[in-house]
Write a protein that binds this DNA or RNA. Structure first.
Length: 430
RNA sequence: UCCUGAGUAGCUCAAUGGCAGAGCAUCCGGCUGUUAACCGGAGGGUUGUAGGUUCGAGUCCUACCUCAGGAGCCA
């Protein structure tokens, strides 16, 4: 018998096919039995009339429990009343395993309970849709860079030194020496960009900060492009184009999933170029007028970022932060060295920072000075300084946090639902 | 790390210091077009842990544990 996936049923109307999957739910009105079968591609309603099938088959179907694995065979019919528009009239059923006491029932549950059962929660339609949007976003990022001449060049997960000296890193043993899990591929990207002209990396990132908010994970994914000869303006344009492209692709390909998640599509349709741009100076002025106690020189607090994010209907780009609140490698503005040539992209609707980046220091002497000022180990950065000795160019790039983008695009509260198995503060199960 | 809140049936939640409850799930019965189906019945409890106050504690007090929300921290 021909096995098909549920999203392909429309091409098999009138044929007898087999669907392999799990029982999502069951409804019965006496001699009429509806099985909703989930196969990963979709949900299919399967129907049995007592009398029209053998008593054994009806009995077997009636004994199925939620999440039992099975192979169901029957004729595909177009049926308006069925979710998805197609229905299978069951003529055969093979039970692979009867499931007992599946913990997640069709009723409501708290997030603590659901996170404890994350390995099973992934089967629920809402979680399933969120992760399909995540897949689309990741694929869109790769397509965006691949079609613009970027080369994917992966950067290492194990790194030899606490590079920036700012974030707290996860320390691990690397034979007889200490190593740290990467907090960013950016420094290595600068080396690969000088080899490939423009490059990007896409991988997991680790931060040991004890952050406990809806925007933070200990392990998350970042896509980081780096472009030689690019100055701040070019970096900002690239970031804007990427965000527009990604949102557009989700709107094109994942309408069904956005519907399941109940996302307000109109808000995403507003995400078009050009994005509003705001210098840090202007942002501080606006925030102070709105009642924030922020002083020039402070980094934005969570409330400030949310406020800025709520002021616009599309992502807003904030550029030229004070050099003192940014990383050591940020290139200072030549006309105003107290500000850095950097940019953050804040997603609308209160979601906040999804991208951070800018132009990097490209002069050897200035970089050496910065390394000294930040008390960073000179030896660990020897290779990084080398990049400024051999064919230095102005260059820049940014990092985009995938989970924050998924949370924003899906319109969900917390980043923990945007990654299959979130690593949270003190929580590493399952 | 700090602040706030919550832990009661498998799940989601009620219960003025005075008999431990409901809905869903499970099991049994009924129903030929259901959409979180519906209707009837049954079983299901060391009220997070340890101590204390009280004639009497799920409820009040103390400590601890766990979870949630937020802050700080965080290219």
């Amino acid at each position: 018998m021909r096995s098909v996936y549920v999203d392909d049923l429309q091409n098999h109307v009138g044929e007898t096919v087999t669907v392999r999957g799990w029982l999502y739910s069951k409804r019965s009105s006496g001699k009429l039995l509806f099985l909703i079968v989930r196969d990963g591609a979709g949900l299919a309603q399967c129907v049995l009339f007592k009398g029209a099938v053998s008593p054994e088959l009806f009995e077997l179907a009636d004994s199925l429990t939620q999440e039992s694995s099975l192979k169901v065979t029957g004729e595909v019919k177009k049926e308006e009343r069925a979710p998805g528009g197609y229905e299978i009239s069951v003529t055969g059923l093979e039970v692979v395993q009867i499931t007992k006491d599946y913990p997640i029932t069709p009723k409501e549950h708290g997030t603590a309970f659901l996170m404890e059962h994350r390995h099973l929660w992934l089967r629920s339609s809402r979680q399933h849709s969120i992760l399909r949007v995540r897949h689309e976003i990741i694929k869109a990022c790769r397509d965006f860079f691949d079609s613009r001449g970027f080369t994917l060049v992966d950067t290492p997960i194990f790194t030899p030194a606490a590079c920036e000296g700012t974030t707290t890193l996860f320390e691990t043993q690397y034979f007889d020496q200490k190593a740290y899990l990467t907090q960013s591929g950016q420094l290595y990207n600068e080396a690969t960009a000088a080899a490939f002209g423009k490059s990007y990396c896409f991988g997991p990132t680790f931060r040991a900060e004890k952050s406990k908010t809806r925007r933070h994970l200990m392990e998350f994914w970042m896509v980081e492009p780096e472009v030689c000869f690019a100055e701040l303006e070019e970096v900002m344009q690239l970031a804007e184009n990427l965000v527009v492209f990604v949102v557009q692709r989700v709107l094109e390909n994942r309408q069904e999933d956005l519907k399941v998640i109940e996302r307000d599509i109109a808000k995403l349709e507003q995400v078009r170029s050009p994005f509003p741009r705001l210098s840090y100076d202007e942002a501080v002025k606006t925030l102070r007028e709105s009642g924030s106690g922020i002083e020039w020189g402070d980094d934005f607090g969570a409330a400030d970022e949310t406020m800025l994010s709520l002021m616009h209907d599309r992502p807003v780009m904030v550029h030229r932060y004070p050099t003192s609140v940014k990383a050591f490698y940020m290139q200072p503005d030549a006309s105003r060295p107290e500000v850095a040539l950097c940019v953050d992209v804040l997603a609308p609707e209160g979601y906040g920072e999804i991208i951070g980046g800018g132009q990097r220091v490209h002069e050897e002497s200035l970089l050496r000075q910065r390394i000294a000022e930040h008390h960073l180990p000179e030896e660990a950065f020897r290779w990084y300084v080398d990049l400024r000795k051999y064919g230095a160019t102005p260059h820049g790039g940014f990092g985009m946090g995938i989970e924050r983008v998924v949370a924003w695009v899906c319109g969900i509260e917390h980043v923990r639902e945007t990654i299959p198995f979130p690593r949270m503060l003190y929580k590493i199960y399952p």
